[in-house]
Simulated assay, not measured.
Amino acid sequence: MYEIDANFYSGANAEWQKQHFRFEITSDDKFIFFEKLADGSYKKTYAEVDWYRKSPPMLFRLILKSPHELIDTYPALYRGNRKFYYVFETKFGNMFYRKI
């Protein structure tokens, strides 16, 4: 599971994003994006993962049936001091995800 890393841009907006968005990549190469709705349930958006590289650093693209304003089909991968993180370009600007 990957969640928003609010340390990049701390504050109310980053905390709100962290509480409302996350994604998972399953063992069978499925991408599931979770959006928390007003009633506390989650809307799930699915995509196929097309791996460019299956060993660290893990590089992929997402194959969606239709575009989604919060899912970047070509997420960027960056290396921090000890961990990697993915950056999605979205309607909110860059969203930074780390594996939890």
Rank of each mutant, 00 (worst) to 15 (best):
T73I: 15
A76I: 13
G11P: 06
K83A: 06
T73V: 12
Y2I: 05
Y85R: 02
K83E: 12
K65A: 06
K18G: 07
N7W: 08
A6K: 07
Y52V: 12
K36A: 11
A47F: 13
D72N: 07
D50H: 14
E69G: 05
F23M: 03
P57G: 03
L37M: 15
K36G: 06
F92H: 05
K18R: 08
R22T: 14
S55A: 10
D28S: 06
R79F: 09
E35N: 07
D72G: 05
L70Q: 13
F34E: 03
F96W: 10
Y2V: 04
N81H: 13
M58P: 01
K91E: 09
K83H: 10
L70N: 12
I32S: 01
L64E: 04
A6F: 07
E69Q: 06
K91C: 05
K99H: 14
I100P: 06
Y52Q: 15
Y46T: 04
D39S: 10
D28T: 04
N13T: 12
P56Y: 05
L62C: 04
K36H: 08
R82G: 14
I71R: 04
R82C: 11
K54P: 00
P67R: 02
Y85C: 00
F96C: 02
I4G: 01
H68P: 04
T90C: 03
Y9M: 11
D50F: 14
L70G: 05
